[in-house]
Design a protein around this nucleic acid. Structure first.
Length: 472
RNA sequence: GUCCCCAUCGUCUAGUCGGCCCAGGACAACGGCCUUUCACGCCGUCAACAGCGGUUCGAAUCCGCUUGGGGACGCCA
């Protein structure tokens, strides 16, 4: 039996969002660091909101992030027997009772409590009525009237709650379905979960769950409540803040390991280290150093993180990641070795894979289809510029081999022999090759294009300039 | 309203037992350098211990209060 067992338990009512992903990352890291087990549980007890497509999407996002889980996912909707058994035990031991109050009656009780300035709660009307099962009756947990519930949270420290603050919560609905708190306890216990890492919004559920554990005589796991993620304005995170689902970040061209690094760093730290490979995270994350304060999501830093990962990974790996984006951009039959070369040329000029793939465009389209930036053309494809291009065409034609070094030497010689400066020659050359004043280094660009394509572009640029001239 | 939680630069954070912190790193912003474009990179600038009391020789670090923020209060999860 491994000593650390964690679980991630999303409800399939939407895609995996950034907050849930971070919780999953922490759960996964804790288990992997200690060589324990990490389970996935789908909390689909709400048939109205749960959807199969969301389950599939969440699993896909987990896989993409590299968060592998142990064993098959557990579905709460298929474990009614487990919950029924525990509910019956609670009833038999006198820790639970049947309640015949209608939802309307309960709402009225809450309203009264509210008006008295107290916490809205169930009054406990059926607590001592010794009702039996019946139509419309639910099961409630008999909460102790006095005493304190204490637990030492891994991130928040000691939390103390008065039992008197809690009301007798429903553990099984009138339709027989278990309530969240009962199902969680039942499953966590059944799965042998030792460390419950979850969102901040669950701290108030924890005392209730502890009471269930205690009523059942079950061992209480360790809890760790990570704060929620805030938007840039430190308000609750929403779509407006640029925080989206994991799937959207994937589509936008983020590297999964970059997202994981950023997410881990949001609320956790190890000295001044900013970037972590998944291996480093597993090595260093032991559940400590978690920040109890909520953190704001910063798209700019995520972008920077991603850019750093793109620049530091082997070109072959980068090429594999950028391939789908290159296909989307229309470059369907560019071989991966070719993409790897392009990655080396452009990886410092893009912060995500999608933008990187777009950078390839000028070098992958045929000369005739190269988009020419009007302003740059007007400025640099002048008569003088064209003369340079014609002369350079002759120079480059005799370059052999046609590689970056040779081409560069030829260019150097041309500038020197004619007492020119680079500033006179480079702009027209660049405009001819790229179509605008941007892009990769000239020698690398020409080496990538090869002799024929390079010459074609020089020719095409002079023709383009001639056309423009005759038009005006 | 009641209960719980939180509080260091705009943002993420470092800050182990209180002294090495007139608070360090990173992102962003701004300025500069590099430069055959655009970038990368490098250098620098701006910028914070929410407030008030206390404990102490000494507090960002401990305690209390205040303020501000968040969460929870469902037969949702």
């Amino acid at each position: 039996m491994p000593d650390i067992v964690t679980r991630f338990a999303p409800s399939p009512t939407g895609h995996l969002h950034i907050g849930g992903a971070r919780t999953a990352v922490f759960c996964w890291l804790l288990a992997r660091h200690f060589g324990g087990r990490f389970y996935l549980r789908i909390e689909d007890t709400d048939p109205l909101r749960s959807k199969q497509e969301y389950t599939d999407a969440i699993l896909a996002s987990m896989r993409w992030l590299g968060l592998d889980w142990d064993g098959p996912p557990v579905f709460q909707s298929r474990r009614a027997d487990l919950y029924d058994g525990l509910a019956d035990m609670l009833l038999a031991s006198g820790h639970a009772y049947w309640c015949g109050c209608t939802p309307e009656e309960v709402e009225a009780m809450r309203e009264i409590a509210r008006q008295n300035g107290a916490k809205p709660r169930y009054s406990g009307k059926c607590r001592e009525r010794r009702l039996g099962p019946g139509q419309g009756r639910c099961l409630r947990l008999k909460i102790p009237l006095t005493g304190k519930i204490v637990f030492d949270d891994m991130v928040k420290g000691r939390i103390v709650v008065d039992a008197g603050e809690l009301d007798d919560m429903v553990i099984r609905r009138a339709d027989g379905m278990p309530t969240y708190n009962l199902a969680v306890v039942a499953d966590d216990n059944d799965m042998g979960v030792t460390h419950v890492i979850r969102g901040d919004d669950h701290v108030s559920n924890t005392p209730r769950q502890i009471l269930i554990y205690q009523a059942l005589g079950l061992p209480v796991p360790r809890f760790g409540h990570v704060p929620m993620i805030l938007g840039h304005d430190r308000r609750k995170l929403s779509k407006r803040h640029g925080a989206r689902s994991v799937i959207e970040y994937q589509r936008d061209g983020l590297l999964p390991q970059a997202l994981v690094s950023y997410l881990a760093r949001l609320g956790w730290s190890r000295g001044n280290q900013e970037l972590f490979t998944p291996e480093e995270l597993v090595r260093y994350f032991d559940g400590g150093n978690l920040n109890p304060a909520a953190a704001a999501f910063d798209p700019a830093k995520l972008e920077w993180t991603n850019a750093r990962f793109m620049r530091s990974m082997p070109p072959d790996d980068l090429a594999r990641h950028v391939a789908p984006f290159a296909r989307d951009a229309g470059f369907v039959d560019t071989p991966e070795e070719r993409l790897a070369e392009l990655c080396v040329l452009f990886r410092e000029r893009a912060t995500d894979l999608r933008a990187l793939a777009q950078c390839f465009r000028p070098l992958l389209v045929p000369a005739a289809e190269l988009a020419v930036h009007e302003k740059d053309a007007a400025r640099h494809l002048t008569d003088e510029g064209k003369n340079h291009l014609r002369a350079l065409a002759a120079v480059f034609r005799s370059c052999d081999p046609f590689d970056a070094e040779t081409v560069n030497a030829a260019l150097d010689a041309y500038v020197a022999d004619n007492s020119l400066t680079f500033k006179q020659v480079a702009p027209p050359l660049r405009t001819a090759l790229m179509g605008f004043m941007g892009g990769s280094h000239l020698n690398d660009t020409m080496a990538f294009l090869g002799r024929e394509e390079t010459l074609a572009r020089l020719r095409r640029a002079t023709e383009f300039a001639d056309e423009k001239k005759s038009q005006s």
